[in-house]
Design a protein around this nucleic acid. Structure first.
Lengths: 243, 243
DNA sequence: CATGCCATAATTGTATACACCTTAGTGCAG
DNA sequence: CTGCACTAAGGTGTATACAATTATGGCATG
C-alpha cells in the first residue's frame, strides 16, 4: 500500500493542468469555477486549491477582482525562464564541484549518461523515449548533487513550467537537420559537467551547465519557426502568446 | 478607493505568518486547522488557503498523512537560500547590462543610492529605518531592470523567505565592530552594480551582485553567534533549527 | 446615437456540515 | 510487565449553502 488513492485535489490538479495546456480556455479570459468544476467532476473546494497551486506554478494568474485566468507567455518569457533554469542548475553544478560529492552519486550520474549513450547509438536508430527519460533522470541527479534541499526545490519548481524543463521542445518528429548531432553535443556537455564536478572545477561546471540549458532555447526557436504557435494547437503549449 | 478591504485570506495569511515566525508552534508538530482558525478568528476555508500559500513560500511543509507542519531551516539551508538569491539577482544585473536599460530607470536607482548615502551620513548618526527602506527599494528596482516578469517574480519569491531578503539580519543594535563600515562597503557594491550595468559590463555586474548577497551571510553569522537561535526567541526567526 | 445608471443574474469568497481517516489512549491477553 | 488490538476522539478532505461582490444587459436621458 505505498500508493494512496488519488484525492480529489490530485484529480483536479491533473485535470486542470491538462485543460490549460491543451488550450481549452480562451487566452486571458477568466475561467469560471463552477463550470470547470463540473467539467472535472469535482466540487469547487478542491478545484480552488488546484487553481491556487497552478497560480503558484505560474500557469494561472490571479485577477484583481477575483478568480483566475490562464497566464500567457511571450517568447522573451520563455527565453528568460530557460535562462533562469540554466543559472540555477549551473549553481547546483558549481556547488557540487566546490563542496564535493560522494563517489556513488557520481557513479549514478555516469550510469545515466551511459544509458543516454545507448539510447543515441541504438541499432534501430535513436531510442527517443529512452533518451528523454534518462535525460530527465540525469538532470534530477544533477539537482541533487549539492545535497541542498533549497536548491533542489528551486530546480524542481522551475521545471514545473513545461517550457523550462530540460526535455522541452524535444519532439521526435524533429527531423531537423543535425538533430542527432545536437543530442550528441548535449551529451558531450553532460560529460563535461560531471568531469568538472569530479575535478572540483566549480566555474567550469557552472559555465557548461548554463550553456547546456541554452540548447533548450535553440530547440524552442526551431520549434516555434516550424509550428504556428497559435492559441489552440495540439502541442500542449497553448498558453504561449501567439504575438 | 485604491485599497480593497482586507479579505479573510489576507488576515489569515498575515496572522499565520506572524504566528509561525514568532514561534507559536512546536517545531515539527502538525498544526491543527481548527485550533489555528479559532486563534485567528476566521473559518477553516481561508486558513487552509493561507496554509497552501505558506507551503508554496516554504515556511510550512505538508505532511504525507495530511495537514502541515512548520518547516525548519538549518544554517546550510539559510546559506543556500542567500546564495540562490544572489545568483538570481546577479542574473538580473547581468541581463540588465547585456540588454541595456533606459536612462530613467538608472536615474531611479541612483536616486535611491543617494538616499542610502544620506541615511548613512545622517548628522545624528545612522538613520537605520531609512537605510533599510531605501536598501529594499534599491533591490526592488534592480530586480525590475531587465524588464523581465519571469526574473522579477523569481526574485520576489526568493525574498519571501525572511532570511533570504536583502534586509535580513540587519538589526539596529548591531553595534558590532565595523557595522557602519560594512554598510559603506555594501553601498560601494551598489554603486559598482549600477556602474557595470550602465557600461554594459555583464560579467562584472553579475559578480558584484553575487558577492553583495554574501554580505547577508556574514550578517547572519554575526547574528547567530550572538543570539541563541533556540526555538522560541523574539527574533521573528523561530523556525530556524537550533541544532 | 452615445453614455450613464440601475436592476438582475452570475460568480466568487466564506462558513459550515459531514464523512472518512488518523491517531492516541485504554484495556485485555499473553 | 509488555505488546497488541480496539475504541473513541479529533482532524482533515470534500461538498454545499449562503452572502457579498462583480459583471451584464436594458433602459432612460442628454
Amino acid at each position: 500500500m505505498t500508493d494512496r488513492k488519488p484525492s480529489q485535489l490530485d484529480r483536479a490538479l491533473r485535470g486542470l493542468r491538462s485543460l490549460v495546456m491543451s488550450g481549452a480556455f480562451e487566452g486571458g479570459q477568466r475561467l469560471s469555477e463552477v463550470t470547470v468544476a463540473k467539467q472535472l467532476g469535482t466540487s469547487r473546494t478542491p478545484l480552488r486549491q488546484a487553481m491556487d497551486r497552478l497560480v503558484a506554478e505560474g500557469l494561472l494568474e490571479r485577477i484583481e477582482t477575483g478568480g483566475c485566468r490562464v497566464a500567457t507567455f511571450t517568447r522573451e518569457d520563455i527565453a528568460d525562464a530557460i535562462e533562469v533554469r540554466g543559472v540555477i542548475e549551473g549553481t547546483a553544478a558549481r556547488l557540487a564541484a566546490e563542496r564535493g560529492v560522494k563517489p556513488e552519486q557520481l557513479a549514478h550520474a555516469k550510469a545515466e549518461l551511459d544509458k543516454i549513450d545507448s539510447a543515441i547509438a541504438h541499432p534501430d536508430g535513436l531510442d527517443f523515449d529512452a533518451y528523454v527519460r534518462h535525460n530527465a533522470r540525469f538532470h534530477e541527479i544533477l539537482a541533487s548533487l549539492p545535497a541542498s534541499p533549497v536548491i533542489q526545490k528551486e530546480i524542481e519548481r522551475m521545471i514545473l513550467l513545461p517550457f523550462a524543463s530540460p526535455s522541452s521542445f524535444l519532439s521526435e518528429q524533429s527531423a531537423m537537420p543535425g538533430f542527432l548531432a545536437s543530442l550528441r553535443h548535449a551529451q558531450h556537455q553532460h560529460r563535461g559537467m560531471i568531469d568538472a564536478i569530479e575535478n572540483r572545477e566549480g566555474a567550469r561546471a557552472e559555465a557548461i551547465t548554463r550553456e547546456h540549458a541554452r540548447l533548450a532555447l535553440i530547440n524552442f526557436n526551431h520549434f516555434s519557426d516550424n509550428q504556428p504557435l497559435v492559441g489552440n494547437d495540439a502541442s500542449g503549449l497553448a498558453f504561449i502568446a501567439s504575438t
